[in-house]
């Protein structure tokens, strides 16, 4: 491994660690300041649980100890690999996250690929035809989409495709009243379609508008002008010059969009009651499940960070200008 690459990776790793520590502290403080009492959230509105019992639960969870002490206890155990137990699911945090993450991954993966491909193609078309009808239609479509709230779009899809047309199920990831082992792949897929569509439709607008802008820039460059002067056809200009020059920023953007993807998934999973990580993070927040929330925060940070890092690394691999500099 080259020295510069090693230095690069080391720097990124160091950044990740410091970021993780900062994230843990901030999340913990926010939870402390939150008006939600974990005990009330746990026992619910039941009057059967008296004040004494509440105190016992609080003591059992260690809630009566000072915040700093509790944070340090949690922090040391996580360093030892113990992520604690989720209060609402009553299972180890890692196990909960692992299961939820898998179903979210299918959702986000499909949305990510669809939005990337469709957004890129639409963006290229709009950018080449800048100012023409095709561009105006695509841009208008994107601007409408980008100003649409995710949850509203989700509800709209449910109303149209699930309720009125009845093409897809309304919510959840599996049919209700069917044993887990009897659920077919087709069932799972049909439950996935609407949430994935909602999530990707929003991603398309983002990628498309950025790609359009970059394509229009490239079309105005001297090298495209020269390509025209050399008699290259529009087709040849697009395939020889535009796509490669535009795909660099597009690829980066696509990996940087991990955070928006995750944010979007929270809304979408909530609207469709889709039991993924996004759904779990809302539950843990509303019910004061500190261990689970912290766990998800850490995992999502690593997820988003991985996206950004991939973008950085890809940039170094694809762009000869950066690659050759690294070599030299």
């Amino acid at each position: 491994m080259k020295k510069s690459t090693r230095k690069f990776l080391f720097q990124r790793f160091f950044k990740l660690i410091t970021l993780l520590i900062a994230l843990c502290v901030v999340t913990f403080i926010l939870m402390e300041l939150s008006p939600i009492d974990p005990v009330t959230a746990y026992v619910g509105a039941s009057t059967k649980v008296g004040a004494e019992q509440r105190a016992l639960i609080a003591e059992h969870w260690g809630l009566n100890r000072p915040p700093v002490e509790r944070f340090m206890a949690w922090f040391t155990s996580i360093l030892q690999g113990d992520w604690g137990t989720s209060m609402i699911y009553r299972r180890p945090v890692l196990e909960v996250i692992g299961q939820k993450f898998l179903s979210s991954l299918a959702l986000m993966g499909i949305a990510w690929i669809l939005s990337g491909i469709i957004g890129f193609i639409l963006g290229i078309v709009a950018g080449i035809k800048e100012g023409k009808l095709a561009d105006k239609l695509i841009s208008a479509y994107c601007h409408i989409l980008i100003s649409t709230p995710t949850f509203w779009l989700g509800i709209l899809f449910i109303m149209v495709f699930a309720v009125q047309l009845g093409w897809f199920p309304v919510a959840m990831s599996t049919p209700i009243g069917v044993l887990a082992e009897d659920v077919s792949l087709l069932d799972r897929l049909s439950h996935l379609v609407l949430p994935a569509l909602t999530l990707s439709v929003l991603g398309i607008a983002n990628i498309c508008l950025h790609t359009r802008e970059k394509t229009a820039d490239v079309m105005r460059t001297d090298y495209v002008l020269f390509a025209k002067a050399r008699g290259e056809s529009s087709r040849s200009i697009v395939f020889n010059h535009v796509i490669k020059n535009v795909s660099l920023p597009a690829v980066t953007l696509q990996f940087l969009s991990f955070s928006e993807l995750f944010g979007g998934a929270i809304f979408v999973e909530q609207v469709f009651s889709y039991p993924g990580l996004g759904h779990a993070v809302v539950q843990s927040g509303l019910r004061g499940d500190l261990p689970l929330l912290m766990g998800i925060a850490i995992i999502s940070l690593i997820f988003v960070y991985t996206g950004n890092l991939t973008a950085d690394i890809l940039y170094r691999v694809i762009d000869p200008r950066i690659r050759e500099e690294v070599k030299a």
Binding site: D222, L225, F226, K228, R230, G231, N245, D319
Partner: peptide
């Protein structure tokens, strides 16, 4: 005919595709 009968020698290296 451009590029075939009449060719241009442009002003600067900016007229070359930076990624090719």
């Amino acid at each position: 005919i451009r590029g075939k009968e009449i060719a241009l020698i442009p002003q600067s290296v900016n007229y070359l595709d930076p990624l090719q």
